[in-house]
Amino acid sequence: MRIAVYLPLLLCLLAPLGARPLSERCEPRLATSLLTASSLVLGTASTVSLGLLAVTGLIRIPQLAALGHWSAHTAQHDDPTEFSIALLAGLLLGGAVLMAARMLWRRARSLAAAALEAACLPARDGLVVVDDESPEAFALPGLPGRIVVSTGMLHTLDETEHGILLAHERAHLTAHHYAFVAFAQLGAAANPLLRPLATAVTYTIERWADESAAAATGDRTRVARTVGKAALASRRAQTLARAAGAALGILGRRGPRDPLASAGPVPRRVAALLAPPLPRHRALAAATATILTIATLATADAAHDLDLLLRTVGAS
């Protein structure tokens, strides 16, 4: 096995460095797509690479090599991969498959439960109002989906802000944001190094919904106020208030001491709404596409190398 098999693993080490730039500098819809694709493709590529390395170790064991009519002696001679590396790859592969399967099972159960709950909730135009003084609002995916809002949240916001809130939650449903989150988390489950990408997706879908609400209402400032107001009224009010106090005054260039550099997601969302809309940033999109292409081609090349190795040890 040549260097190609290690390239997807190396890219997974570097990929988290691009999560923040993509989420902060790129238009949210495009950023969500790029981050999700990166997590899924790199997670798959790294898992395949681990599988390829593990196979090179298995065919060195005479009892296992005999099952495929391979020569374990030839494999040890012709393959430069250390057996310890192949063994480690096998252990990591087992963990990756186990975590990915566990995540898929949990996600399938939660989506099925959400769909069932949504179907049972009485709604008017897809809206469910729950008598609860705690200010809450969320989109519940299903066939059809539901927007659930508590009376506490309705009392917190005025009539105009109600429309902004509903536009935000409808965007989650119509754009199927839960699917983006699920795919990004699947890649991160297979490779924990990609967790920053999955975390960034949970932020960019909120930014996507914010921008959808701003486009529907035509008032970015009002949407920013609604986002901040709803967040400050939630159970995380005290924590968010401390971060938002510094973030709401930041509208210019961000320097090295920029409070938003370490601020939470809500202050960053508010600041983004108070600034002009972000561009699609084709350079970042092209760079991401190039990295994913390299990972895919490297995985294909590594698979070809393994095929040649199996042919060699099988012919001996």
Score class of each variant (00 low, 15 high):
residue 236 R to I: 04
residue 198 A to G: 08
residue 172 H to T: 10
residue 41 V to E: 11
residue 101 A to M: 12
residue 154 L to D: 04
residue 225 R to S: 07
residue 218 G to D: 02
residue 78 D to W: 10
residue 224 A to G: 05
residue 65 A to N: 04
residue 186 L to G: 13
residue 111 L to P: 04
residue 5 V to D: 01
residue 126 G to K: 10
residue 228 G to C: 00
residue 247 A to G: 15
residue 271 A to T: 07
residue 1 M to G: 09
residue 87 L to V: 14
residue 284 L to D: 11
residue 63 Q to H: 05
residue 279 P to Y: 04
residue 80 P to I: 09
residue 15 A to M: 04
residue 68 G to R: 05
residue 237 A to W: 00
residue 280 R to G: 07
residue 171 A to T: 08
residue 107 R to V: 11
residue 180 F to R: 15
residue 30 L to M: 12
residue 313 V to R: 07
residue 58 L to K: 01
residue 44 T to N: 13
residue 188 A to H: 13
residue 39 S to F: 09
residue 279 P to A: 09
residue 20 R to H: 00
residue 131 D to L: 14
residue 139 A to W: 04
residue 26 C to A: 14
residue 69 H to A: 13
residue 166 L to M: 08
residue 263 A to I: 06
residue 296 T to G: 00
residue 56 T to N: 09
residue 293 T to R: 10
residue 269 R to S: 14
residue 160 T to I: 05
residue 136 E to P: 03
residue 24 E to H: 07
residue 40 L to S: 14
residue 196 P to K: 02
residue 76 Q to D: 12
residue 103 M to V: 06
residue 236 R to T: 13
residue 294 I to Y: 07
residue 6 Y to T: 03
residue 40 L to F: 13
residue 73 H to T: 11
residue 33 S to K: 11
residue 107 R to C: 06
residue 55 V to Q: 07
residue 8 P to Q: 01
residue 70 W to E: 05
residue 180 F to I: 07
residue 99 M to D: 10
residue 64 L to E: 10
residue 11 L to K: 05
residue 155 H to F: 04
residue 206 E to Q: 10
residue 239 T to R: 13
residue 303 A to F: 02
residue 114 A to W: 01
residue 16 P to G: 00
residue 8 P to A: 03
residue 130 V to W: 09
residue 206 E to R: 01
residue 270 V to Q: 08
residue 261 A to T: 00
residue 73 H to D: 15
residue 255 G to Q: 01
residue 243 A to N: 05
residue 18 G to L: 13
residue 191 N to G: 02
residue 293 T to Y: 06
residue 8 P to S: 00
residue 37 A to G: 15
residue 36 T to L: 13
residue 268 R to C: 00
residue 93 L to T: 03
residue 76 Q to P: 00
residue 176 H to R: 14
residue 133 E to L: 13
residue 219 D to P: 00
residue 231 A to H: 08
residue 143 L to N: 15
residue 293 T to C: 14
residue 71 S to N: 12
residue 107 R to I: 03
residue 258 D to V: 03
residue 78 D to K: 07
residue 30 L to K: 10
residue 301 D to Y: 02
residue 198 A to I: 03
residue 151 T to F: 00
residue 210 D to P: 06
residue 146 R to V: 09
residue 65 A to Y: 02
residue 209 A to N: 07
residue 251 L to D: 06
residue 259 P to K: 01
residue 81 T to C: 14
residue 219 D to V: 01
residue 95 G to N: 02
residue 239 T to L: 13
residue 195 R to P: 03
residue 100 A to T: 14
residue 97 V to E: 10
residue 73 H to P: 05
residue 275 A to Y: 06
residue 117 E to A: 12
residue 280 R to N: 04
residue 180 F to N: 15
residue 302 A to V: 11
residue 162 H to Q: 04
residue 98 L to H: 11
residue 57 G to E: 02
